[in-house]
C-alpha cells in the first residue's frame, strides 16, 4: 500500500503526460497543463517544507546558544522581516514599501557582490590551474584567453590581430563551443529520456525514499 499506490500513480500520471505527444487534442492539452500547474503548486509547497526544516534546524541552535548562534539569529530575523514586509506589501510590492527597500538596498547588492567575489577566486584558481602542460590544457587556456581578451576594448585595439580577435572569439563560441554543447545536450536528453522511462515503469524508485 505505502509503495504500491505511489508506484501506480507514477505509472498512470507518467503515461497520461506522455500521451499528450500522441493525442494533440486541445482538451487533452487542458488536462496536461492542469497537471503541470499542480506540479508547480506542489513545488511551491515543497519550498515551504524547506522553510519549516530550516527553522527546525536553526531555531533550537539559537535557543541553546550553540556555536555561531548569533549568525543564525540574524538569518532568522532577516527571514522573518522580509516575509512580514513581503506579505504586508502584498500586491503593491513593487511600489514604495519596506519590502522594496529590502530588495533594492540589501538583496540586490548582496547578490551581485556574492557573484562578483567569484571573479577574484576564479582568477586566482585559473592562475594556479592553467598551465599548458599538454595540448588539451593549451587549448583550454588559449580559448579562455581569446574570449577574455576579445571581450574588452583593449583586445580590439591590439595591433594586427585586434580586428580578427572578436571574430575568432565569435567563431569559437559559435562552432567548437556549440559542437561540444550540443553533444552534451544530446547526451543529457538521452539520459532524461531513459530516466523518464525508468521512473514511469517503476524501475527507478529512489524518489519514493526508503521504507
Amino acid at each position: 500500500m505505502k509503495r504500491t499506490v505511489p508506484l501506480i500513480l507514477t505509472f498512470l500520471v507518467g503515461l497520461f503526460m506522455v500521451g499528450e505527444y500522441f493525442i494533440p487534442h486541445y482538451r487533452y492539452r487542458i488536462w496536461t497543463a492542469e497537471f503541470l500547474e499542480w506540479g508547480v503548486i506542489l513545488a511551491a509547497a515543497a519550498f515551504v517544507l524547506g522553510l519549516i526544516n530550516l527553522i527546525q534546524v536553526n531555531l533550537p541552535k539559537v535557543l541553546k546558544r550553540e556555536r555561531d548562534w548569533g549568525y543564525k539569529l540574524v538569518m532568522l530575523i532577516a527571514l522573518a522581516v522580509t516575509l512580514v514586509a513581503g506579505f504586508t506589501a502584498g500586491e503593491h510590492r513593487d511600489g514604495p514599501s519596506v519590502y522594496k527597500w529590502v530588495y533594492d538596498y540589501t538583496f540586490v547588492p548582496l547578490n551581485a557582490t556574492m557573484f562578483a567575489l567569484l571573479a577574484f577566486y576564479i582568477a586566482s584558481a585559473a592562475f594556479r590551474a592553467f598551465k599548458a602542460r599538454n595540448l588539451e590544457a593549451a587549448l583550454l587556456l588559449g580559448a579562455a584567453i581569446i574570449v577574455m581578451v576579445a571581450r574588452v576594448p583593449a583586445g580590439e585595439s591590439l595591433p594586427v590581430i585586434g580586428d580578427y580577435l572578436p571574430r575568432f572569439m565569435n567563431w569559437i563560441m559559435d562552432v567548437p563551443n556549440i559542437a561540444a554543447r550540443r553533444a552534451i545536450f544530446i547526451g543529457a536528453a538521452l539520459g532524461a529520456v531513459a530516466t523518464g522511462l525508468r521512473v514511469i515503469l517503476g524501475l527507478e524508485r529512489s524518489h519514493l525514499g526508503a521504507d
Binding site: 505505502k2 509503495r3 499506490v5 505511489p6 508506484l7 500513480l9 507514477t10 505509472f11 498512470l12 500520471v13 507518467g14 503515461l15 497520461f16 503526460m17 506522455v18 499528450e20 505527444y21 496536461t32 497537471f35 503541470l36 499542480w38 506540479g39 506542489l42 513545488a43 509547497a45 550540443r182 545536450f185 544530446i186 543529457a188 536528453a189 538521452l190 532524461a192 529520456v193 530516466t195 523518464g196 522511462l197 521512473v199 514511469i200 524518489h207 519514493l208 525514499g209
Partner: peptide
Amino acid sequence: RIPIAFIVAAYAGVKLTGEANGNLMTQ
C-alpha cells in the same frame, strides 16, 4: 510519497517526449 510520485511522474512524462522532441531531434 503520493504528491512526490505525482510531481516526478508528471515531469518525467513531459521530459520523455519533450526532451526527445525538443532537445534530441532539434539539436
